[in-house]
Design a protein around this nucleic acid. Sequence first.
DNA 1: ACCTCCGCTCGTACAGCGTGCGAGATTTCT
DNA 2: AGAAATCTCGCACGCTGTACGAGCGGAGGT
Lengths: 246, 246
Amino acid sequence: MPPKSDPFTNSVWLRPPRTRGEQPSLSREQIVRAAIELLDAEGLAGLSMRRLGTRLGSGTTSVYWYVTNKDELLELAVDEVMGEVYVPEVGDTSWRIGASVLTAGTREMLLRHPWVIGLLGVRPNYGPNAMRIGDRTVALLSAAGFSGLELSHASALLTSYAIGSATTISAMVTSMRQSGMSMTEIAAKLEPRLERIASEHPHYAKWRQEVGGAAYVPERIWDESFTFGLDRLLDGLEMWLDRPDR
Amino acid sequence: MPPKSDPFTNSVWLRPPRTRGEQPSLSREQIVRAAIELLDAEGLAGLSMRRLGTRLGSGTTSVYWYVTNKDELLELAVDEVMGEVYVPEVGDTSWRIGASVLTAGTREMLLRHPWVIGLLGVRPNYGPNAMRIGDRTVALLSAAGFSGLELSHASALLTSYAIGSATTISAMVTSMRQSGMSMTEIAAKLEPRLERIASEHPHYAKWRQEVGGAAYVPERIWDESFTFGLDRLLDGLEMWLDRPDR
DNA sequence: ACCTCCGCTCGTACAGCGTGCGAGATTTCT
DNA sequence: AGAAATCTCGCACGCTGTACGAGCGGAGGT
């Protein structure tokens, strides 16, 4: 027997914020904003309901009047930062540039708020901002020549790449932050281990020699790598659009 | 001042398992296996050190002899399941099929062990299996004609897509499991909301009409979507390889 | 044979977590 | 004025990761 109240019919997005007058000292919006600040500063583990209460200057459990539980608060926070993603208007640019801006923007948002990444795999997002992005993405890809299921496949390809790319980088940035070292310092510490690994993995060793230390230079390479992949991906989509037999 | 012992020079992979004779009733290998079983069955939240101890038939904190903390255990678990990913030998197939098998295999591994997804963004992986995959991927792409930084860009593109694609699907599967409903049941519950959303988002509404209910049929569509994206992506890479001016 | 040490197990304890509950305060409606 | 709604929050429960140190059994040295 399914639970009496499931998360699909009983969702945050269907419930109006619990505030009518101007009196109350808290509001859903303010709570979400404070939560995002905590999350940005200290990551998922840094957000506890107690700390959130303290930061808002209220009691430990006051937040529970506006939000039924922590999961729901995170759902609100995720959609809030989704609002930072800009999807170009149809007609403002070519679809290629439009898709490029969308994908890069999504990736950048995820890198600004790395805690989102850990939440994306847990529950799908039906918040208003996610929906707005979806709608405008349809417009963009539709104008490009996609339709039906292929349109959603193309859209999934773009967002998957943005998410995956951000995930890899987030892992490194997080470990940088936690260790308090720069990427080059980490590379130096890792050096002997990588050397030993190279001695057991001939192909890796050969590649390592080809690129020298270049692979461990920080952000610039990550951006280059993302752009390279994005260009290949857009090439592939364009090629499909140009196919006579589709 | 950085911490005295950082995670890069002092890593699980550099410390031999704490066992010499045959006496002890526990072993690192056995612990990791049990942890993975718990994680597969109940997700990240389902693994606690106490439950792990109970499942192994030992005391609450016995595990701490073999593993310094939970994070390290998770690191071991992640690399263990990385061992399930098969990277085709060079020469066995074309590079295209090789890359295809690698990417699909990674995605399938992630869908078998969805908890891995939540961990990928937290810390990079330098375990032996990750290294083996890396080495063989270099071999594969090197034989295809990639070299230097472009090789690692191409490799990043493939794994990013595998990760991102698995993330989206994992979100849906997880929410299916938690609600105990099938995807079609969820779609039915969601229907009125989506309809209202469609009424406010014209492009989405138009697309919705195009595909009808097809978009909410479960796994088959997901696989089709992944394959579509993968093919576009490989087309793009192939195109780059064929460029005269690279 | 005894002692010492080492590898290993695990009970206890502590600080922190999410949150259900209900008492209380305050504002609004009748 | 009295009742009802709205909102705040202290307390308590059961859970978490893990530091610490007591205790156990077998191996090696004397």
